[in-house]
Design a protein around this nucleic acid. Structure first.
Lengths: 193, 193
DNA sequence: AGTTTTTCTTGTCCTAGTTCAATGCATAAG
DNA sequence: CTTATGCATTGAACTAGGACAAGAAAAACT
């Protein structure tokens, strides 16, 4: 049950058995069925969820009512909304929804506090996690600005080769910031060559 | 000299005089003239710079040779390239360049280590800083995908009202991910109403 | 002040991507 | 097995924004 998360958290900082079991004791296991919205627009996100099994999408709804997918989280990824109005007063516009039946380990803000008090070295591991996250987001921003739809799609396939088999195509279009119709045309064009 | 940075770092975590002076002793003051490239493509970024005075841009060069500006850093902001190949093997493609004569407080990775050892509570402050950074980047990604050029420009004016008076307009176009010509047309259209 | 260089504007033509149908395909539900 | 319902595909007309070129206007440099 905890092997995946322990391996994941130990990637950049190594922890003792004792530290890991402190960590594990603060997590809550949770099963969530397909198509469940775990975080609604306007709600405060009071969890960080580690995906043991399944697939989740995190998305915004823009001013014209269109969904924009910010993240697909699959096995061994974390999903949460960290932009909890620290720098803005308006509540988050983010939704988090399961796309498959999922199993999570849930980390609450209180547990996180407790962990950092009991085992301060975790603070560093979570900082590095966030740093990676920032790095990925920055990279994606850069590519969103400078690549064509075709380039973005091909890069997506390389970066997340398993996602297209798991989620509907229009979700990928939404992630790439293009219309579903155009993604279909891009794919047709690629297939021809 | 240290009042700005101390105020900034104390925003979300409060520190004792002693902690702050430990922090300050680990920083290096540096003056850098206008139009200096502080970080070249392919170099490892071995600093985090806090801007006391001046203006800096951080940018990528894309596959077609176009610059894409990722950040303008002015007074009280940090600038660095944190995406130091943690998750990629290729070296960073990021440049950091002063646009005005600047004064910085420079924080090196070694000093950072030392600080976290001597005064571990700073770990949290820097985590929060990164979290804010991630939050801002995520928001920008979202808007880059879902807004028109005009909307992006108007929002930029609201978010960074002082920047347009300080930097060349084509830099703003590059930040917004549009051509300088089109930004000019957008501005003309806005002025007409 | 004059000259060079950089930046900004404006116009024309062009392309990537959108919108809005219409149609065919699955998959789930009765 | 049949029927909805949601998805993907394709095409035609349209639009936001890009590329290129030529001037105008500011800065920056003698």
């Amino acid at each position: 049950m905890y092997s995946q998360i322990n391996k994941s958290i130990s990637r950049y900082v190594s922890f003792s058995e004792e530290e890991l079991s402190t960590f594990n004791s603060l997590l809550e296991y949770k099963k969530v069925p397909k198509k469940t919205i775990m975080l609604h627009e306007g709600e405060m996100c009071n969890f960080e969820a580690f995906v043991i099994k399944g697939c989740v999408r995190k998305y915004y709804i823009d001013a014209n009512g269109f969904e924009v997918i910010l993240q697909f989280a699959i096995e061994d990824a974390w999903v949460s909304d960290i932009s909890f109005s620290i720098y803005e007063t308006k509540p988050s516009q983010v939704f988090i929804e399961t796309l498959e039946d999922c199993e999570f380990l849930i980390f609450s803000p209180e547990s996180k506090e407790e962990l950092f008090t009991k085992a301060p070295r975790f603070e560093r591991a979570f900082r590095i996690l966030m740093q990676r996250n920032l790095s990925v987001t920055q990279n994606r921003l850069f590519h969103t600005i400078s690549q064509t739809a075709t380039e973005k799609y091909l890069e997506f396939l390389e970066l997340y080769p398993t996602i297209p088999q798991r989620v509907a195509q229009h979700y990928i279009a939404s992630y790439l910031g293009i219309s579903p119709e155009f993604l279909s045309k891009v794919r047709a064009r690629i297939a021809k060559n």
